[in-house]
């Protein structure tokens, strides 16, 4: 196990170097010029040259990359082009906690809602309850969150107009501000997870060892709790692991619609502005999070299923 973890952590270094090189290369080759975008209408050739030199963008590619790599090794992604003079690490330090908070809360809500509902639906498969849950989940799964959000918002605005209690439509800071975005997040991801849980539990219910357990005369409850639920967790863990990693990069749509100061909107905005230092910072942190979460997921397989062994 220890050797497995060490190897994986060593691999992680290569993954991160690869990801940085790739992001840097793609940024370098992509059309669009950050300095032109920064200057917009106010371009003049001298000014353009001045700024380009200040950011070191006039240097040869190899030199730029070497400088970037050396800095990145020290956890420094340089200064943002668009957020003038601000360090990328400062920008990430402000945005990532916000995205983690909102995403983490949404993930907890999703698990709390979807896993029990999916399990119950599977245990009582083909009853009215199962049909209801599956239909709702299917309907929600078909509605993207950029449609769901305005729907909920128009209900909220209608409440406000009638002088009824309503929630803030946007912003950040109080628990009330969390409700709508977390709700949209949760509804969307629960729809998928309910179906995943249900299928997984149904599959386990058909296993021989479940039949054996029942044949031994164990009660339904004991069979479900001891044999079914734990064994059906593997696909769920596979789903949850990487989603935790993606919490780092936030949700573009939700942060954009609810004016949340997270990293999701920033990531997209930085691409438009060719703010490569920020893009690189976000990509590398996301890559690190994905690698670490995959490792944790693999380790948890071994805990959930004793047959899984890592040499």
């Amino acid at each position: 196990m220890l050797r497995f973890v060490t190897t994986r952590l060593l691999n992680m270094v290569f993954v991160l170097v690869g990801v940085s090189l790739l992001t840097f290369l793609v940024g370098h080759l992509a059309p669009g010029d950050p300095i032109l975008i920064l200057l917009g209408n106010n371009k003049s050739p001298e000014l353009y040259a001045q700024i380009k030199a200040a950011y070191g963008l006039d240097r040869p590619f190899i030199e730029q990359f070497a400088k970037f790599a050396w800095r990145a090794l020290h956890g420094d992604f340089g200064l943002s082009y668009a957020q003038q003079g601000q360090a990328v690490t400062d920008i990430l330090a402000r945005g990532v906690p916000v995205s983690l908070q909102i995403g983490g809360l949404a993930l907890l809500c999703t698990l709390a809602v979807a896993v029990p509902l999916g399990t119950i639906a599977a245990v009582r498969s083909n009853t009215w309850f199962d049909n209801l849950i599956v239909s709702i989940a299917l309907a929600l799964y078909a509605v993207p969150n950029f449609i769901l959000a305005p729907l909920l918002l128009s209900v909220d605005i209608a409440l406000y107009r009638r002088g009824l209690p309503s929630l803030p439509v946007a912003g950040w800071g109080t628990p009330a501000h969390l409700v709508l975005p977390v709700l949209v997040y949760t509804l969307g991801s629960s729809a998928y997870l309910v179906r995943l849980t249900r299928n997984s539990v149904l599959e386990v219910l058909r296993e021989d060892y479940v039949r054996t357990a029942r044949a031994k005369g164990l009660s339904n409850r004991a069979v479900n709790a001891r044999h079914v639920v734990r064994n059906s967790l593997i696909p769920i863990v596979t789903y949850v692991g990487p989603s935790v990693a993606f919490l780092v990069s936030g949700s573009f749509v939700i942060e954009y619609m609810f004016a949340i100061p997270g990293i999701g909107y920033l990531a997209v905005q930085s691409l438009y502005q060719r703010d490569f230092p920020v893009v690189q910072g976000i990509t590398v942190s996301l890559a690190a999070a994905v690698v670490i979460m995959n490792l944790i997921t693999d380790i948890s397989y071994a805990i959930l299923d004793p047959r899984v062994r890592y040499g």
Binding site: P150, L153, D156, I157, Y160, R161, S166, P168, V169, A170, G171, Y256, M257, F258, A259, Y265, Q269
Partner: peptide
């Protein structure tokens, strides 16, 4: 001065008094 990346959000904020 409040920032709204999405102009539609700013409109909703006005409608709800924010």
């Amino acid at each position: 001065v409040k920032f709204y990346a999405n102009p539609d959000t700013a409109y909703n904020a006005y409608l709800t008094g924010a």
